[in-house]
C-alpha cells in the first residue's frame, strides 16, 4: 500500500502525520507544497473518485448493509487476524507499518469486512477508539480495496483528535461511522 502525506496548513502551522510513530506533528509553516499535483499524476480514476468524495461529501454513495460477512469460509482466520491487528495497534503501533501491506482477501468488499470487525467487538463505545485497527483490518481483508479503496487518516483541527476510515467504490465502508466527515485527511494510503 502506498502512503501519501497530505500536510494541513492551519493558521500559520503545518500539521503532518508521522506514520511510523502514529502521531500528528505540528511545525511552523514552511513552504506550502502543492500535493495535489502528485495525486493527479499517479492515482487511478477509481481511487481519485474516493478522494474526491471525501473532499466533496455530496458525491459520496451509500450502500445497504449486507449479511455477506457472515458467510465467509475462513471466519476463524479473520477473527484471529482482527484481534492481532487490534492488539498491535494498541500496544505496538510501529509494527502496523508492516501489516498495512498485507492482502488477505477474505471479504468481497470493505462493507462486509467492516461489519465483521464490528461483530468482533460489539460494544459500539469501544469501537470509537478502534478506528485505526478497524480500517487496517478492512483495507487488508477486502478483495476490492487494492483497486478501488483508499484508507484515510485525518485530524480534527485544532483539537488533537484523529480518525481513520475507508472509502471504497466511492462509499464509506463503515455504515456506523458518521464522524469521518469532520476529519481533514493528513495521510492517504492507496
Amino acid at each position: 500500500m502506498r502512503a501519501i502525506n497530505r500536510p494541513i496548513f492551519y493558521y500559520g502551522k503545518e500539521f503532518r502525520f508521522n506514520r511510523f510513530l502514529g502521531c500528528l506533528i505540528c511545525e511552523k509553516d514552511k513552504s506550502r507544497d502543492d500535493f495535489n499535483n502528485e495525486l493527479a499524476d499517479s492515482i487511478s480514476d477509481e481511487k481519485r473518485r474516493d478522494i474526491d468524495a471525501v473532499n466533496n461529501p455530496f458525491m459520496m454513495l451509500y450502500h445497504e448493509k449486507s449479511n455477506g460477512w457472515k458467510a465467509i469460509k475462513q471466519a476463524w482466520i479473520a477473527k484471529m487476524y482482527g484481534r492481532l491487528i487490534t492488539w498491535l495497534c494498541l500496544h505496538c503501533y510501529p509494527v502496523m507499518n508492516v501489516f498495512i501491506h498485507f492482502h488477505l482477501n477474505l471479504f468481497s468488499n470493505a462493507g462486509d469486512a467492516s461489519l465483521f470487525y464490528y461483530n468482533l467487538y460489539p460494544d459500539l463505545k469501544s469501537q470509537q477508539t478502534l478506528c485505526l485497527p478497524r480500517s487496517i483490518f478492512i483495507a487488508t481483508t477486502s478483495r476490492r480495496f487494492k483497486q478501488y479503496g483508499v484508507l484515510f487518516i485525518g485530524a480534527f483541527l485544532p483539537t488533537v483528535r484523529m480518525h481513520a476510515w475507508i472509502i471504497e467504490d466511492g462509499m464509506p465502508a463503515d455504515c456506523f461511522d458518521k464522524q469521518w466527515i469532520h476529519y481533514n485527511p493528513v495521510m492517504i494510503f492507496l
Binding site: P57, F58, M60, F156, L157, P158, T159, I181, H182
Partner: peptide
C-alpha cells in the same frame, strides 16, 4: 439533494475551542 439525500452536520467543537483560546 444535498439536504434530502444526505444528513451531514458540522461539528462546532473546533470553532468553540479556537474561540476559547
Amino acid at each position: 439533494r444535498e439536504l434530502s439525500q444526505y444528513c451531514y452536520v458540522a461539528d462546532m467543537f473546533g470553532l468553540s475551542l479556537s474561540g476559547l483560546e
